[in-house]
Design a binder for these strands. Structure first.
Lengths: 165, 165
DNA sequence: CTCAAATAGCTTAGCGCTGAGATACATTGC
DNA sequence: GCAATGTATCTCAGCGCTAAGCTATTTGAG
């Protein structure tokens, strides 16, 4: 029973026995799994005329309190992409009529992004599918295993400063 | 004690209590952690004049049996990127004199990619740094926790077909 | 042997993101 | 009140990747 990373670790043990490459057992799998998960969830997004970037923005708006409005700066902090990326994501979503931009009343520099009715309808339609896809991706683990992994990943995220950012 | 994903889960519980979003406790953290790890390891690569893509190719060659030769197709299967991406990665590495391409003796369609002396020197210099960075990223977990996570991630990868591919 | 199907590698248009920088407005310290 | 600093958003050139498609070669079924 060996996955790709097991083979990689074995190769390193043969070629560089002086190095302790055990961190790769976690980080190598994290990277590969992340890619596979992105590919699979991406298919669900596509089925609803979306991609991961658009879904990310719509879902972030949707889960914020009604009336589902956030500024580009808030979207940026939630998404881990640069301000330029948010501008472009919003350009695309606005062109499709899924979000609206209006000037902020309280801050002359800022903009308020809101879900339109069409945007809200689309994300509410895509969400259950996305959740089902996500559950399917984790089906190989028991609930206890999922909790253990979630807890460990949270510990790592907190140690890296995610949570205050 | 709450990280970004805890807040997201709480928002979903308030906005869509009908959905079981618990898979996001794992997948949301996987995504964020993956991004943070990429950013941090990327800094180490940069410090050696590399990026993740170049390091990936050089490391894959380096850990294969001496004389560290692989075909583009083998590099492609190891890296989870398309053949076009491999062509371009090799173009860049070849231009810098870090790898060489020569026609395969046994298959007229194929090419053999080899680490040059300079390429091998560079990857051998960068590797210990990368391993140290990787270990640092996991410092918040005990060895037992790291093993538990690695095992769970392997289970997931195998369930998704990684390992036979 | 032959020819259709599979495989290897390369090409290129288009895409989303980054990084650097510009502009406008807000806040802070004096 | 005002200058200096910080913040919010947008712009855009450049980058690496994908997807689709091309050529050349190998494989395998009949």
């Amino acid at each position: 029973m060996a996955d790709h990373v097991d083979r990689v670790l074995k190769q390193w043990a043969a070629q560089r026995p002086d190095l302790d490459v055990s961190p790769m057992a976690v980080l190598g799998r994290l990277k590969r799994l992340s890619r596979l998960v992105e590919a699979e969830t991406g298919r669900t997004f596509n089925a609803h005329g979306l991609d991961a970037a658009s879904f990310d923005v719509l879902a972030t708006l949707r889960r914020s309190d009604a009336p589902h409005r956030l500024t580009p700066a808030e979207l940026m902090r939630s998404s881990m992409v640069t301000s330029g990326a948010i501008t472009q994501r919003l350009d695309r979503l606005e062109a499709r009529g899924l979000v609206s931009r209006s000037p902020s009343a309280s801050d002359g520099r800022s903009v308020v992004v809101a879900l339109t009715d069409a945007g809200r309808a689309l994300i509410d339609e895509a969400l259950p599918d996305h959740v089902a896809t996500s559950a399917g991706l984790l089906a190989a683990l028991t609930k206890e295993e999922r909790d253990t992994v979630a807890t460990a990943l949270r510990t790592l995220l907190e140690s890296l400063g995610d949570g205050k950012g």
